[in-house]
């Protein structure tokens, strides 16, 4: 079998039949689209990083937010999201194996590996829905969003309490933990403990919050919720459209469209998109869940 496939002149891109990039029009345009899409995600994640740093200890720590694992009780920080990451990496592997099978014109191989990729994408989407459910639903304990007032920091300065989320120290609801903003972004910065009279006042002036939406977030600063819904939502939309594209190509593979065409380049193109989705998740995982 020869190493190259001949394309018709409609698909070749200018340059007197000699592409300076050695790539077809479709593949090149997919790359250009991915650059612009990557820049959107760079913008989102940089903005997230900035505010995460800016609000310091008012920002929730992801390991306190995402602690659930299906069919298991108790605290399992990071475990589920680590599994989601593994599933997406695995689906990237099956995708590149489908591309490889396509290079050998192995229709059965492409069908099998693309099928596994579809399954991986579907499981990932389900997992994301599950994470959203738990984040929106929140804990039974809830938290107190403080009303207008001030409190003195140990160093003597006075801070405003309005909108600050104070979390319960434990299930007994005897102690509220009041964080304050550390510009240094030190995740281990201390809390002021509210007890007795101060606690009663804080609860009376404040508001009980359960779970998270776009304006309130029981785990900490509401911007965390906004960023979470927006960035994971935007990434999830990409996963969804990736699954749809993979499904269309999967049907075409089964129908023998690419076998007749003489090459499986379409699998490569949707493969590029799928790897990009995985790539974005690598960054979301680091900046949302680890840092």
């Amino acid at each position: 079998m020869s190493n190259t496939a001949t394309m018709d002149s409609k698909t070749a891109w200018g340059g007197n039949n000699e592409s300076p990039y050695g790539a077809s029009y479709g593949k090149l345009m997919m790359w250009f689209f991915l650059i612009s899409d990557a820049l959107s995600f760079t913008g989102f994640l940089s903005a997230y990083g900035f505010y995460r740093h800016y609000y310091g200890s008012l920002w929730p720590s992801a390991e306190n937010v995402f602690t659930h694992f299906p069919f298991m009780h108790g605290n399992h920080p990071l475990l589920y999201v680590a599994l989601m990451t593994f599933i997406l990496i695995m689906s990237s592997v099956t995708m590149v194996l489908a591309v490889e099978a396509g290079h050998r014109m192995d229709k059965k191989g492409v069908t099998i590996w693309l099928g596994w990729t579809l399954l991986g994408g579907a499981i990932f989407l389900g997992s994301q829905a599950w994470e959203w459910y738990h984040f929106i639903h929140g804990t039974e304990l809830g938290a107190i969003e403080l009303g207008r007032g001030t409190f003195a920091l140990p160093n003597g300065t006075v801070e405003h309490t309005y909108g600050v989320i104070a979390r319960w120290a434990d299930d007994s609801k005897q102690v509220l933990l009041l964080p304050w903003r550390e510009i240094a972004g030190d995740v281990t910065s201390p809390y002021i403990q509210l007890t007795g009279q101060a606690l009663t006042e804080a609860v009376a002036n404040g508001k009980e919050i359960y779970g998270a939406n776009l304006t309130h977030n029981e785990y900490g600063h509401p911007l965390f919720g906004d960023f979470f819904f927006f960035i994971t939502g935007f990434h999830g939309t990409h996963v969804f459209s990736g699954v749809v594209l993979n499904f269309i190509v999967f049907i075409n593979v089964i129908m023998g469209t690419y076998q007749k065409r003489g090459h499986y380049e379409m699998v490569e193109k949707v493969g590029l998109y799928w790897h990009f989705v995985d790539l974005v998740w690598v960054f979301v995982f680091t900046f949302f869940y680890l840092v």
């Binding site: 190259t4 698909t11 050695g22 050998r104 380049e265």
Partner: peptide, 11 residues
């Protein structure tokens, strides 16, 4: 010119 080619197959 040669027909437009790209690496689509391997052994």
């Amino acid at each position: 010119p040669e027909p437009y080619k790209y690496a689509a197959h391997h052994s």
